[in-house]
């Protein structure tokens, strides 16, 4: 718990309406529980299991490196300094699907690539999420009439968040990522296995 750098001696449990930034932080969600635990000298932590596990999950999603087409260039732009994906704790792109829990399907999924994408997804360990980026991955996009393009990646793997655009702007990516975080937050941690909803 020593890594929490907020000076907790100044924090009182919020009774009145929170005003300062610190009070507001104190008033919300998990950080409150953590700080309360800190006050009790780090011995006890009160939280729901869902809240705690989901906090761990959404705070540091590790995507697998798999660019498919044009949208992958925007993926690079999102990770670079200007848009800075590191803010979401997910700049660690993994070259191996075994170490990743998020997959960006960024680009056109052709018929020939489809089994590979599917295999990549199957190689990832649970829990795992998929964000489908760009019209191509969503529906086939501009290539929907083509003979060699799969009409939407959700035909082969389940998708959590769809981001439209051709290519989506980096801001849209970030919005999509925030949506996924919301989704993870609101899920029961066992939802992926059908335990609770």
């Amino acid at each position: 718990m020593d890594s929490v750098t907020i000076d907790t001696t100044k924090i009182k449990p919020a009774k009145k309406k929170p005003e300062t930034a610190l009070e507001k932080l104190n008033d919300t969600g998990l950080i409150n529980t953590l700080l309360a635990a800190r006050e009790r000298e780090g011995m006890i932590l009160f939280s729901t299991v869902d809240q705690f596990i989901n906090w761990g999950r959404f705070s540091s999603l590790w995507p697998v490196t798999s660019g498919l087409a044009c949208c992958a260039i925007e993926m690079m732009a999102v990770t670079m300094a200007h848009h800075d994906l590191a803010r979401f704790g997910m700049e660690a792109f993994r070259a191996s699907p075994r170490q990743a829990d998020l997959m960006f399907v960024a680009g056109t999924v052709t018929k020939r690539m489809a089994p590979r994408v599917k295999q990549l997804y199957e190689m990832m360990a649970e829990p795992k999420w998929v964000i489908s980026i760009g019209s191509c991955a969503n529906t086939g996009g501009p290539y929907i009439e083509s003979y060699s393009v799969l009409k939407g990646v959700d035909n082969i793997i389940p998708v959590d968040v769809y981001v439209p655009g051709c290519p989506p702007r980096p801001e849209a990516w970030l919005y999509g990522i925030i949506q996924l975080r919301e989704k993870i937050k609101s899920q029961g941690y066992g939802a992926k296995w059908g335990l609770n909803k």
Binding site: L68, T108, M113, Y143, S146, S148
Partner: peptide, 9 residues
């Protein structure tokens, strides 16, 4: 693996 059939389109 990225053959999208542009010429046919």
């Amino acid at each position: 693996y990225l053959h999208r059939g542009t010429e046919k389109l």
